[in-house]
Computed example of a mutant assay.
Amino acid sequence: MLASTHSAHLPAAAVEAPAATDVLAIARQVLHEEAAALHDVANAIGATPDFENCVQAILQLKGRVVVTGIGKSAHVAGKIVATLNSTGTPALFMHAADAIHGDLGMIQPEDFVVAISKSGDTPEIKVLVPLLRRKGVPLAALVSNADSYLGQQANYILHAPVHKEACPNNLAPTTSTTAALALGDALAVCLLESRKFTAADFARLHPGGTLGKRLYLKVGDLSRQNQRPQVREDSPLKEVLLEISGKRLGATAVLDAAGSLAGIITDGDLRRMLGSFSDLESLRARDILTPRPATIDVDDFAAEALVRMQQRNITQLVVTEQGQFAGFIHLHDLLREGLV
């Protein structure tokens, strides 16, 4: 019992500390190795006409792009599918292992298949490829080994040469998945540009979240929810004060006799005015307004309003519609929508 108690309290020096690891050096080495691999991939796509021919075939496609893979390649396939769908190319994911257990039925005669595999010789791929050939659909192989079984059977080779994984054991898919993902991005962007896919098209496919709001939310969508503080050029100071405090936007527009925008008065203008004028009773809006205020049109994107506010270090913009005063948009509106 005494011996057991003694052994349970060994001196700290008796326990060997793990060897120190230069984390930053390892991280940089991984990034440098993967960057070098991407450089090789960029050079490889011009070695044959396959990449360009693949893009043209997909552009003429009446069906969908079906992307498949196994293991880590399946995860890369899922991301490529998401990118294609969001940039105007209808796509879906099919797991290579599930394909031979019923999912092969999702492939239609007018579809196009992209199979991702580093080696191109995995058992699941060798089983799947003959089934795809039997269906008669075009097949592109996104492979590191162009001479593999998959490469030899494919109509198009999307070559992503990788000589070594960033993993020190050269086992864990690291550089190879980065290369495949980047080549998938290159394919999606080539299709996007070939289709003249615009920011407006992108917005229609991304209506949710902050990204969607930046792409579709217009100034008028927000300004129409606000009150429209306004006074005339000859309005007395008291009326100006009541309009600014009552409408709670920190400013009021000043309109001329024709109803056009003559300027703006902010609560900051009022504070500065108190130290500049002795006869407050005789003051009119025209005496303290700021002419040519910063404006934005109702049809401009709300994200642009944020940019203009930041550039001028202000918290509100006068909103116009066809050149006429239409209200205000405030920084709080943008905060509420999550654009800031």
Rank of each mutant, 00 (worst) to 15 (best):
P11E: 08
A12S: 15
A12D: 13
A13Y: 13
A19K: 14
A20K: 09
T21F: 11
T21W: 07
D22Q: 02
V23T: 08
V23W: 11
L24I: 03
V30E: 02
H32R: 14
E33F: 00
E33S: 13
L38Q: 01
H39A: 15
D40S: 14
A42N: 12
G46D: 09
A47F: 06
A47V: 15
T48Y: 07
D50G: 11
F51P: 03
F51Y: 12
C54P: 12
L59P: 06
Q60A: 14
L61W: 00
L61A: 09
G63I: 02
G63S: 09
R64A: 11
V65G: 05
V65P: 05
V66P: 13
V67K: 04
V67M: 07
V67S: 09
G69D: 15
I70P: 01
S73E: 12
S73L: 12
H75L: 15
A77C: 09
G78F: 14
K79T: 08
I80R: 05
N85C: 15
T87Q: 06
T87P: 04
T89Q: 01
P90G: 08
A91I: 03
A91L: 02
L92Y: 15
L92W: 04
M94I: 15
A97F: 04
D98P: 09
G102K: 07
G102N: 07
D103K: 03
L104H: 12
G105W: 09
G105N: 10
G105M: 10
I107F: 12
V113I: 08
V113H: 01
A115F: 01
I116C: 04
K118Q: 15
S119Y: 10
G120K: 08
D121P: 04
D121M: 02
P123N: 04
E124P: 10
I125M: 14
V127W: 00
V127P: 00
